[in-house]
Amino acid sequence: MKLKLRIWRQESSGCKGRMVEYEVDNISENSSFLEMMDLLNEDLVSEGKEAVAFDHDCREGICGSCSLTINGIPHGPQKATTACQLHMRHFDDGQTISIEPWNARPFPVIKDLVVNRSAFDKIIQSGGYISVRAGSAQDANAIPIPKQDADFAMDAAACIGCGACVAACKNASAMLFTSAKVSQLNTLPQGKPEKDRRVLNMVKTMDQAGFGNCTNYGECEAVCPKEISLDMIAKMNRDYAVASVKNFFGTVA
């Protein structure tokens, strides 16, 4: 396959970025999107030009590193697929493909297609955990958890923290990410004691990081490689409403 690529190049966070055109040839349709990028980079390097920087690691759709917006859609056109698992057979020979980094103020570009997603870590640090010291846990089967709850928690926990939800949202909202963690932990009995505090703090951190507000577009859900559902956001909204009322009356645990 022969392809025309339009790629966002940016020296560093302070510099201005721009789209640069490249051409690649002899791309196997069995190669993954990132392998296509590898070949482009190999060509660039052999010419002594600087390679296009992009985040990637596991290349099997689970680590959440890869973060390319392909033709305006985070992770590209395939549903429930990360960029690393997207294969070139889904593109046409001769096609022009635009490749951009996640586009959101809280995710500043570090270089080219690499962005800083540490805002996500901060959100988790503000409450995305259950406080349990190693060694202090009771027997794993001491609290039965209805299968439905466990399954719902697992649906939420499948989030890989890639940030595609933010990148796809026209408001750059991080609601899907935040709500996935809140929903997972607030659903499980182990997470109940910190339920209100968790949701209040995580939303506060999310706001402070500068993410936009949810206007229920649903784009996040559509591009999520793990198909996290908007139901998680509804759950977080519910928990937040309850926690806000409790907070007003000063009864948050």
Partner: peptide
Amino acid sequence: ENIIDQCVAQGVPFAREYGGLL
């Protein structure tokens, strides 16, 4: 054995049976 206890307490959503046990 302690590992499973620890992870369940952390909120790791292990697969469960309908009775609610692991």
